[in-house]
C-alpha cells in the first residue's frame, strides 16, 4: 500500500469519528471490493456474497454509531470490516449446515480483460476458474490467508489481525496455502500451462 492511500484511509477514521453519516458512503465505496471479494472467494457460491457483504457494512454502521470517537479513530478499517464479514459468514454457514456446501467452479465474475490476444485471454480465464475452484479444497485458514494476501492484497499485519495470530504465523499460513494450491494445480490437466 502506498503512503498516499494510507493517508486517505487514516483520515477516513477521523472523519467517521466526527460524523459517521457524512463519511459512511466513502467507507462503502473504498472497501466494498475488498469485503465482497473476500466473501465471494472464501465461500464460492455458498452464500450470496453481495447480501452478506452488505450486511457486514450494516453491522459496521451500527457499531460506528455506538463506538466512542477515540475507538473509531483507532480502527483498522479494512481488517475490521473483513472480520465482521467473516463472522457473519461463519454464522450463516453454521445455521445452514443442512444445505450441502457447494462451491461452483465457474463462479468468477469477469475481471477487466488484461493484455494479450483472445487465446491468451481464454487460457488465463480457464486457469483463473480452476484456481478459484481449487481454493475451495484448501483448509479454511490457509484459504482465507491466501485470499487475503494474493486476491485482496492485504498486508501481513492486517492478515494477522484477522486471523488473531502473530504476523509470522500469518505468513506461514499464506505460504503453506500457496504450496498446497500449487500442488493441487499440478494435479489438474492444466499442469502444462503452469510449467
Amino acid at each position: 500500500m502506498t503512503t498516499a492511500t494510507e493517508d486517505v484511509r487514516t483520515e477516513l477514521t477521523v472523519r467517521l469519528s466526527r460524523d459517521v453519516d457524512a463519511a459512511f458512503p466513502e467507507l462503502v465505496s473504498s472497501y466494498q471490493q475488498a469485503v465482497y471479494t473476500t466473501v465471494l472467494r472464501l465461500s464460492g457460491r455458498q452464500v450470496d456474497a453481495a447480501d452478506l457483504a452488505a450486511e457486514a457494512f450494516l453491522r459496521a454502521y451500527q457499531a460506528l454509531r455506538r463506538y466512542p470517537p477515540e475507538r473509531v479513530r483507532q480502527l483498522k478499517l479494512r481488517p475490521w470490516l473483513i472480520t465482521i464479514a467473516l463472522n457473519l459468514w461463519r454464522n450463516q454457514v453454521r445455521t445452514a449446515t443442512r444445505r450441502p456446501a457447494h462451491v461452483s467452479l465457474d463462479s468468477s465474475p469477469e475481471p477487466p480483460a488484461g493484455s494479450g490476444g483472445p487465446e491468451e485471454h481464454l487460457r488465463r480465464r480457464e486457469l483463473r476458474t480452476t484456481v478459484a475452484g481449487l481454493l475451495a479444497q484448501l483448509p479454511e485458514t490457509q484459504r482465507l490467508a491466501v485470499v487475503l494476501r494474493h486476491v485482496v492484497g492485504l498486508a501481513y499485519s492486517e492478515i494477522a489481525t484477522i486471523l488473531h495470530c502473530p504476523e509470522g504465523t500469518a505468513k506461514s499460513h499464506v505460504s503453506r496455502g500457496l504450496q498446497h494450491l500449487r500442488a493441487l494445480t499440478t494435479d489438474t490437466d492444466l499442469q502444462e500451462e503452469l510449467s
Binding site: V28, Q32, Q33, Y36, T37, L40, R41, A49, A50, A53, A54, S108, P109, P111, G114, R124, L127, R128, T130, V131, A132, V146, V147, H150, V151, V152, G153, L178, L181, R182, T185, L194
Partner: peptide, 16 residues
C-alpha cells in the same frame, strides 16, 4: 498461480 489469484478480485454488483 499468484497471477491467477490476483485476477480473482471481484467487483460487487452495480448499486451495491
Amino acid at each position: 498461480v499468484i497471477r491467477s489469484l490476483g485476477e480473482l478480485v471481484a467487483q460487487p454488483p452495480v448499486g451495491f
